[in-house]
Amino acid sequence: MRTLGEQKDTNATYGRTITELAAENPQIVAVEADLMKASGSAPFKEKFPERMFNVGIAEQDALSFSAGLAAMGKIPFVTGFACFVAQRACDQAQNSIAYNDFNVKVIGTYAGLTSEKNGGTHISIDDLAIYRNMPRFQVFDPGDANEFEAILRYAASCEGPVYIRSNKGKFPTFTSEGRTFQPGKAVLLNEGKEIGLITTGITTIEGIQASEELEKEGISLRHIHMPSIKPIDMDAIVETAKKTKLIVTVENHTIYGGLGSAVAEVLCENYPARLVRLGLQDHFGETAQLHYMMHKYGIDKDAIVSKIREIVAEL
């Protein structure tokens, strides 16, 4: 079983990592839309002011501008609140970037409920769904700051469009520092037998705590962390279905179109099995703190524990 380690801040990780990457690769450039404060890219600006472009509050412009940079051989890392780089700039992502197959890395900051008090208009409930449905985009929701760094490094090294969630705040780490990220590979965190638990992003921390608590009650979970929403690790999903009685997915996102949907698709086509999806159930977020909402919407440790107890009682 994985344990939770030191707390690390997402923004600090972003600033440090892209600055290091830019030092190694002169083609890397940064594009911002008046939210450097939210991405944490200030160190990059300090070190490479001429390679930082801030287009103002203009997310659509930011993404198409990045496409132009990429067309000339640059590797842009463009950021914006996840809601705006996914929803507002959706067409620009799809056509300027994906359709043209440009090497742009889009970072959606304050992803999902981590937008907290910015409230319903700013909580990206569907950014994973939007990007998952765009041909050519790879889509990642990192579980902790170490993994976020590994994904950024991978994104800098691979060709083609990538969407990465940046989850605002400080969270405990559970992956090791310096690990190489493998797209399309799930991470097995606990090898229990009864119930399969598949989590992504910040819900994995909740899942780790939930499986610890349930283990004490004699309910063993096969817990898989799935930072790679696309490509998705089909083998890990099917194997989990084979080894357990039922699968529960948890995501900081609507249950439509994200992790839960992706798992459902894999199961239906390959190994039909029972599935319960935890996430936002067709409603918007609200102005509140992260843990308040995670609890209310049923994606925190307590919600996972009680849902699984309920399921086990019915099995």
Partner: peptide, 19 residues
């Protein structure tokens, strides 16, 4: 909520936030 919300607050004509 800090971003004005017409469904929650009487007197607001339009919920906004996204500029």
């Amino acid at each position: 909520p800090k971003h004005v919300d017409r469904l929650k607050v009487q007197g607001i004509d339009y919920s906004s936030g996204p500029l």
